[in-house]
């Protein structure tokens, strides 16, 4: 379970970084950039707390 959560954390972090690179390259709109980063932010916080529990 923890492994899944940690992978999810990685994916969420990527969602906060990759969209800005795509935006710079002109491959994504402002709306999509903001939506993807918001999803990444929420998923990161939702996953990182239980992932770190018990460490």
């Amino acid at each position: 379970m923890k492994l899944v959560l940690r992978i999810l954390c990685g994916v969420a972090l990527a969602l906060t970084i990759v969209p800005s690179c795509l935006k710079y390259a002109g491959n994504v709109s402002d709306e999509w950039l903001k939506a993807l980063m918001l999803i990444g932010t929420f998923v990161w916080f939702a996953a990182v707390i239980p992932a770190g529990r018990g460490d």
């Binding site: 906060t16 800005s20 950039l33 903001k34 939506a35 980063m37 918001l38 990444g40 932010t41 916080f45």
Partner: peptide, 12 residues
């Protein structure tokens, strides 16, 4: 720059 995600990051 990045909408609500940016605002959340600043607050957190």
């Amino acid at each position: 720059a990045v909408g609500i995600a940016g605002l959340l990051c600043v607050i957190v």
